[in-house]
Amino acid sequence: MDFNQLRFIVEIVETGSISKAANNLFVSQPNLSSQIANLEKEIGKTIFNRTNRGVTLTSYGVEVYHYAKAMVEQYKIVEKKLLTNSNENKIKIASFGSEIINSQFFEVCRRYNKNNYEFEIYECGVEKAIEKVNYRDCDIAIIIYSDFQLKKLTQFLAAEGLELKNLFTGQMKVHISKNSPLSRRKTLSKENLKGLFHVKKSYLFEGMFGFDYELEYLDIPNNKKTILANGNKTYNDALHKLPSFAMEVDWKCNKELPSDLARIPYCDKKLTITCAMVKRKNEILKEELTFFINKLIEAYR
């Protein structure tokens, strides 16, 4: 079996014709037919049913096509990345949104500012961040998780050949505009939040590692009035312009950042959230990434 045979299968299926496939692939029709016949002989199973009207996939052939399609698509991605005229050094990080993480990322950009550098920080939820590391679209992921998610998270990472390194922790608190009368309270209760819009950063509530269960544990009132924000600007604007609140993580940071949001404990319940790095197992981090992680730990120590 070789890659060309898989490419031939995909082209035949998607054109619906061996002759059209041969024409598109710039090979002779007898050669293409021979290649498919050789593959069927090698694996001992029939991929195509041949009739006077053309060819159709067998039930086994359908499975072969799906695998072949995945291989061809992956090849195109690799080919594009290797042959495109691009920067020599790439530093790519997937992360949840955070001003401190962004500021330390910019420190990396300032320190390693030679030519042929491409820096990227991709803001997303946990599942997407892990996926991007697994598919090598990013070098590392900075994610957050609760104690309730730890077992499922470690099992999932182990199955994907990834590993977790904890960095620091924070507490889930209520975020509310400092212009709100509620911002002057030392704690907020379920009664205080009733009737308010609940503002959520959408990517923190997506996929299998969303924080829906954590909100249930805290007994956050279900107001049936939710605003899903895809970015920090929408998130902040909603909290300032509407009677609203959000549940977010309060990280104990050495660097004071200006903020017009109050962070207030919710009732007597506490929920610890851990920030961690995800990387591929046994892979040595680039110098730039080690510098970034050390700067993060230093900021939150």
Rank of each mutant, 00 (worst) to 15 (best):
L6K: 00
T274F: 08
N113K: 00
P30N: 13
K173M: 12
E14Q: 09
I91G: 03
F106Q: 13
C275D: 01
I47L: 03
K81G: 11
A229F: 04
L6V: 00
L239I: 02
D212Q: 13
I121W: 06
E131A: 13
S189A: 13
V133R: 02
R280S: 13
Y213R: 14
R50P: 11
D268P: 04
R185E: 14
L193N: 05
I93P: 11
V126R: 04
V72Q: 00
F48T: 02
R185M: 15
A158S: 07
P30R: 09
K255L: 08
K132W: 10
E248W: 05
L228M: 04
M247T: 06
G207N: 08
N113E: 08
G170Y: 05
D219C: 06
L242P: 01
T51S: 08
T187V: 15
R110K: 09
R7K: 15
C267W: 01
G161M: 13
L82F: 07
G125A: 13
F168D: 07
N223F: 05
M71Y: 07
K224A: 10
F119I: 07
S19M: 11
Y75S: 12
F48W: 05
S86Y: 02
L164R: 04
K200M: 10
T187A: 14
F119V: 05
S180R: 03
L193Y: 06
I264N: 09
A37H: 11
Y203K: 03
F209W: 07
S19E: 14
F205V: 02
N23A: 13
W251M: 04
C138R: 05
N294A: 15
L218F: 02
V126H: 01
K281Y: 08
A229D: 03
D237A: 00
E123W: 09
Q29S: 11
S19W: 02
L215C: 13
E287S: 14
N38T: 15
I293E: 12
V174W: 09
L193F: 08
A129K: 11
V126L: 10
A276Y: 00
N115H: 00
Y217H: 12
D237S: 00
L162I: 06
G97M: 08
A22L: 10
A159Q: 07
G61H: 04
Y217T: 07
K225F: 09
K20N: 11
Q35K: 03
K190C: 14
S33F: 04
G125N: 05
Y65D: 02
A238Y: 04
K194L: 13
L164N: 01
N236S: 04
S189I: 10
